[in-house]
Design a protein around this nucleic acid. Structure first.
Lengths: 224, 224
DNA sequence: CTCGTAATGTACTAATTAGTTAATTTAGGA
DNA sequence: TCCTAAATTAACTAATTAGTACATTACGAG
């Protein structure tokens, strides 16, 4: 769970300080980790700086020492969370698969990943509540996501060439669809699950899982 | 915009009080309306009672007089918002249409409706952030939504009988899919729109609009 | 060994915020 | 017309909360 920190201003100093009892790197990571949980659980205004401090190994003073203020701490949490997620995405190896199998794999991976990382989903929800005011300050993130589109495009084009997929779709729309299905299945679990509880037998995630692949592949299929 | 109030304890008293300068019904409605905007914009903890009061025609004291406290006011806002939305849904007349056209109509209506009511979407997002803690206290809402499933089921069964739709789908899954597409297109506009801004030409809503119908009908189609 | 600086703990403050107190006005029925 | 209860106002309070001042400790360079 502890996430590696690589804040530019900090590293070259801390690297030299081997064997300290005072461990700024660990303290920083510990604060970030705790803050992520608090922000994901309660939102930006709902999160309490004191609550974060209380759950860290250190004090509130350190939180301000390392991150300046609540907003900057939140920004660092957001940055770290996105980085973690997109790194995981790149570990997927789809080169050897047939285009339709690869597409299935992407859907399955995305749903599973979202289900396994509800805190990340919650942070994205919170961002949207804030009209993306914070994420807009993190330009690096925009580039991380371009990679996802490129690899999707490769698979889509291969599928078109193989006659498996229809040719009138934009890769971004495929990505949009997969995101919508995977995201919604986690983000709206509380309300949807409760509103329609008598219609839902198993767990909410399963529904979007096998269903998700079906929806995406029928959307892309070259028949009809 | 002003929404009709029908709080049991209040009505029989206020109905008799015709011609007052003091208009408790209007004041109540005015508070609810203002509160909805503030809660939808800032969430439960982000919303400020003082901010609501300031934008009302009346004072903060009245807000407590009519609603007790912040949480109960929020609950009333949530109840009123859901009621408003589901009422609109029932105005749709689909009996005369062919099943596939009716289904298309539902998708189109749902997307348009969500796009036109971002404050409602935001309230649902906020509920989910709170794990549905508040909505769970409003049992009436659960029943409102059962109607949506029933009318969808009718259309689906007609489509199956006419050989248009495959027969292995549960109506709740169709509803889930339509909700996911319509909801996501509004709820994640800020982050998705910004992350992929270079891939997106037109407005975000249009994408899910024609696309939405396509996705749902291909999912249901009886070919392949 | 001692001096300077980064790291840390304790105790505080100023501002905000949900909620209240107590007095005042409005209107309709007796 | 006067009495009662609902409706309203303005000023207040207690608690919470982000952020800080200041003293102290750990370390490593010289």
């Amino acid at each position: 769970m502890a996430m590696k920190t690589d804040n530019a201003a900090q590293t070259e100093k801390t690297d030299r300080r081997v064997g300290w009892k005072q461990a700024p790197d660990d303290v920083r990571a510990n604060i970030l980790d705790t803050a992520q949980k608090e922000f994901a659980e309660n939102g930006f205004s709902g999160a309490r700086v004191d609550a974060i401090a209380a759950r860290t190994k250190t004090s509130k003073r350190m939180l301000y020492y390392y991150f300046g203020n609540k907003e900057q701490l939140y920004l660092e949490v957001l940055r770290a969370s996105y980085q973690e997620v997109r790194t995981a995405e790149q570990s997927l190896n789809l080169e050897t698969l047939a285009p339709d199998d690869a597409m299935r794999q992407i859907v399955r991976f995305t749903v599973n990943h979202h289900v396994a990382n509800p805190d990340f989903i919650r942070l994205v929800m919170i961002e949207n509540i804030h009209h993306g005011r914070f994420i807009r300050q993190l330009n690096e993130i925009q580039e991380l996501n371009a990679g996802a589109i490129r690899s999707l495009e490769k698979i889509y084009k291969a599928g078109c060439a193989a006659g498996l997929f229809r040719k009138d779709i934009k890769p971004i729309d495929i990505h949009w669809l997969i995101s919508a299905l995977a995201f919604f299945s986690v983000s709206n679990q509380a309300t949807f699950g409760w509103l329609f509880e008598k219609y839902l037998t198993g767990a909410r995630a399963d529904l979007a899982d096998s269903l998700g692949e079906d929806i995406v592949l029928r959307f892309l299929a070259n028949h009809g």
